[in-house]
Design a protein around this nucleic acid. Structure first.
Lengths: 253, 253
DNA sequence: CCTCCCGTTGCACATATTGCAATGACTGAT
DNA sequence: ATCAGTCATTGCAATATGTGCAACGGGAGG
């Protein structure tokens, strides 16, 4: 691991909050101002930070360009997007695509619903392993070793009265998800939002992605979402086929 | 400048092309594989690169999240966006917002036209100083020192028969732009695309942004775009007012 | 089964990073 | 207009970190 590189990347994150002075950055990193300045000079030279007129540091435009290239590199996203758009259009709810990467399930696509309230989830960020339906459906369909690794990132932080706060309970839930074939978020992160998620299979029958349908409880409570599970599952299968899946019974555990 | 940080950032750019092996990265950087591995480990740890199943390295999801935060930090973009959307809707053409940053004018917003052909410009990337109308309009409205600095990044690469390929000619064009108040791209980058751009003023009457309207020549030749200059100028003034401009005659050169 | 290549790690050493002192510029107060 | 304080910046010596090398394990292909 490279300490100097880690510091520089830390700076990028630090200026993402709001514009920062050289002194702010030095203080944040715990280094001398001359050290912080050299890191900033390199980041600025490569476009990862920029200087705004009053001299403080902001996020650089190269991040915008790289962010879009990173999105383009997510193959599943472009294959799935038409299906997500259609599903969101048909039901009026927000639809997400999550992808298993490392120890997290990351939102890689999101199509907003037709309502005026936008969901707070962000593409590029990981979903909460213990609350997000899209994360639970992917974790539930992993082998024991992978499931174990993914659960180590779960914080079990309580957000609402229905948040799962123990590993034992989460594992019981995951077994249930595995058997019935879909996951739910019953107001576990925000108590006015619920959600169902379906697994997406790849060419080898593995689950590396999930699709979720999210709605305000006031607009569509969980029972209402459950009523459309067949349609959601069909959409998830359509995405699965786009990823090379050949249907149930082929190489599926 | 930090050599180690520069290398790490170089790696990010390198994997943005396509997925790369450890050996590829080491060769690209000209370092030992163990050195490349440590850089990659740090980048992976912070989410700037990720490992795909066959072991190669791809862009990390953190770049997606940071790219969106970087967009959010561009204040002018959110202020201007409604005006750009309306202008694109009214005319059916692609509209860009460019911002002066360092030695470049960078695309910070883009609203696609109604046609089925999408323009290749990318948010976060700099516009070509010698061909892009949005760049020329901003450069034309700078003081001599700033203009000189901006022109040092011009490559004068010939793209088409109408590309400006000398600094002397570009400066003549910029003087013309300064006097008549708008810039044009007469098929200078792609011979089937043309474009006009108007200056956007800030609270002190300076031009740090530009708005451009771009169309396929077959759909709307330059004469057609010129016919709507009053409307385009009104939109640019609307964005200017959103940025604090108080109209002609106030602190304007 | 063997060979080759890839990814990885521990360690000694070379070098790049670091902090310090000094400097210049800018801002605010008098 | 001047002075004091703060911020950003640079040159340089010291040192902490990054680097390459050797060795190793695993996997793939012949």
């Amino acid at each position: 691991m490279s300490q100097t590189v880690a510091r520089a990347l830390d700076v990028i994150g630090f200026v993402s909050g709001r514009h920062r002075s050289l002194g702010d950055v030095a203080e944040h990193l715990g280094v001398h101002k001359s050290t912080a300045l050299r890191l900033l000079q390199t980041l600025e030279d490569r476009g990862f930070v920029r200087r705004v007129p009053e001299g403080r540091y902001a996020m650089g435009f190269q991040l915008i360009a790289l962010g879009q290239l990173a999105l383009d590199q997510v193959e599943a996203r472009s294959l799935a997007h038409p299906v997500l758009r259609e599903l969101a259009g048909r039901h009026g709810h927000t639809v997400h695509l999550g992808e298993l990467s490392g120890e997290h399930i990351v939102y890689v696509d999101k199509v907003d619903g037709t309502g005026s309230v936008a969901m707070g989830s962000r593409i590029g960020l990981p979903a909460h392993t213990h609350t997000a339906a899209v994360a639970k459906v992917v974790v539930a369909h992993q082998d024991a070793e992978t499931r174990d690794r993914l659960l180590t990132t779960a914080t079990f932080h309580r957000f609402t009265g229905t948040t799962i706060t123990s590993r034992r309970e989460l594992e019981r839930q995951l077994d249930l998800v595995r058997h019935r074939g879909w996951a739910e978020d019953d107001g576990e992160h925000e108590d006015y939002i619920n959600c169902v998620a379906l697994p997406v299979f790849d060419a080898r029958g593995r689950v590396t992605h999930g699709i979720s349908v999210t709605a305000l409880r006031a607009v569509a409570p969980l029972d209402e979402l459950r009523r459309h599970l067949d349609d959601f599952r069909a959409a998830a299968h359509e995405v699965s086929r786009a990823l090379g899946w050949r249907g149930e019974g082929h190489g599926q555990r």
